[in-house]
Amino acid sequence: MPTCQDCRFYTAIDEIKGECFSLGFEVRGKTDSKKCPERAFRPNKSPKSKKAGAARY
């Protein structure tokens, strides 16, 4: 099951939490994507980059 850290909008702050670009607040990286507020979860296009696709959104 995908998690917040698998989202193209997620930017890691440390090992446990990160910032959600689309929502503007901190989230836990291991949070299930089905619990994403506003259903803003968008999977990464490329597993190599957490920012892949964010510029094209």
Rank of each mutant, 00 (worst) to 15 (best):
C20M: 10
F41Y: 15
E15V: 01
D6W: 05
G24Q: 13
A40Q: 06
E38W: 02
P43E: 03
F41Q: 00
R8C: 07
F25S: 03
G53Y: 01
K48S: 14
N44S: 01
D14F: 04
D6M: 09
A52F: 08
F21Q: 15
Y57H: 09
D32F: 09
V27F: 01
E38D: 13
R8L: 10
T3C: 02
I13Y: 10
G24T: 03
P37C: 01
K45G: 10
C20L: 09
C36T: 09
Y10G: 01
S46W: 14
K30D: 12
M1H: 14
S49A: 12
R8S: 02
K48D: 15
D14A: 08
F25E: 00
A55T: 05
S22V: 07
K17A: 13
A12L: 04
T11W: 09
A40K: 09
P37L: 01
R42Y: 01
T11I: 14
Y10S: 02
C7D: 07
N44L: 07
I13L: 15
G24L: 08
K35W: 06
G18M: 12
S46Q: 13
P43A: 01
A52I: 00
P47W: 14
R56M: 04
K35Q: 09
T3V: 05
P47G: 02
S33I: 00
P47N: 13
R28E: 08
K45V: 01
G24P: 02
C36Q: 10
R56E: 14
K50G: 03
F21P: 04
K48V: 11
G18R: 07
S22L: 08
A40V: 12
N44E: 03
G53S: 02
E26F: 11
N44F: 00
C36I: 07
A12K: 14
K34Y: 10
I13H: 08
R8A: 04
Q5K: 15
E19T: 14
A55E: 09
E38L: 04
F41E: 00
K35M: 11
D14Q: 09
C4V: 08
R39P: 03
P47C: 07
Q5N: 11
F25R: 00
P37R: 02
C36D: 09
C4N: 03
G53C: 05
P43K: 05
I13F: 06
S46F: 09
C7K: 06
T31D: 05
A54K: 11
K50P: 04
K50T: 07
I13D: 13
P37A: 00
C7N: 00
F9M: 08
G24E: 14
P47H: 06
C20P: 10
G53L: 00
A40C: 12
K34S: 15
A55S: 13
I16V: 14
P2S: 01
A40T: 09
G24V: 02
F25Y: 12
K51M: 13
F21G: 06
N44T: 04
I16W: 04
